[in-house]
Amino acid sequence: MDLLKPLIALLAIVNPIGAVPFFLALTQGMTSLQRRRTLRVASFSAFCVIAVSAVAGLHIIHFFGISIASFQVGGGVLLLLSALHMLNAQPAESKKDDVDEGHAKADAGDSVAVVPLTIPLLTGPATISTMVIYAEKTKTLLEHAVLVGYGVVIGIATFLAFMAAGRIAKVLGSTGINVMTRLMGLILAAMAVELLADGLIKLFPVLSAPLPR
């Protein structure tokens, strides 16, 4: 297994820089201490979602009797939808209704660090699907540990992006963030097509047969 592909896919899906505007909006009115606690909780929560998906995600789909090929096709579709949202400079795994719902839950007492920052703005179905698909491809315990380690990388990337949120917003501006989001969306779309093709070939082996001359 190419160990770089999962990390590239995760960085494209999670896209911490693209979530910076939402972090700034959701933490308006907070003190600096509250904002730092929020970014710490969000970073740790993102790691937890990725780590649990890598360790237990495969067992969960087996429990429900879902084949990995079917999951690959479904995950590929989710990734492609996320990529299309990103190409339109929208959050990869959320819609406006998700953000509004997140605000409502936050008002009810839930931490914005978990909802909606971590779920669904940072991690969501596409992230979980990606980790399960790549976990199935691991052949050694070391490769599996590397996948969990990528959760640490994503957590650190999220922490650094949110820590520098104010400076990033000033340097990139809304146009720069939109460009970054679209670029990651293009990369993610290519990976989604690859996952879809791999899953469809497993479900329908005839697709891999050479064409008659």
Rank of each mutant, 00 (worst) to 15 (best):
G76V: 10
L80D: 13
L81C: 03
S82V: 11
A83S: 15
L84K: 14
H85I: 06
H85R: 15
L87A: 04
L87D: 03
N88R: 15
A89T: 15
A89L: 13
Q90G: 02
Q90L: 15
P91T: 09
P91A: 05
P91L: 08
E93Y: 01
E93C: 01
E93R: 07
S94E: 06
K95S: 10
K95M: 07
K95D: 11
D97I: 13
D97S: 07
D98Q: 03
V99L: 10
D100I: 11
G102R: 05
G102L: 02
H103S: 00
A104W: 02
A104M: 06
G109W: 05
G109T: 05
D110K: 06
D110Q: 09
A113Y: 09
A113I: 09
A113T: 08
V114D: 02
P116C: 01
T118F: 00
T118K: 02
P120M: 00
L122S: 05
A126F: 04
A126I: 05
I128T: 05
I128P: 02
S129Q: 02
S129V: 01
T130A: 10
M131P: 05
V132Q: 03
A135C: 06
E136A: 11
T138S: 12
T138I: 07
K139S: 05
K139N: 06
E143Y: 08
E143D: 13
E143W: 07
H144E: 15
H144S: 14
A145N: 10
L147T: 12
L147N: 08
V148W: 10
G149Y: 14
G151Y: 12
V152N: 05
V152A: 15
G155R: 13
G155W: 12
G155T: 13
I156W: 12
I156H: 08
T158V: 15
T158L: 07
T158Y: 10
F159L: 12
A161C: 11
A164K: 15
A164D: 09
A165C: 05
A165E: 10
A165P: 08
I168A: 04
A169Y: 13
A169D: 14
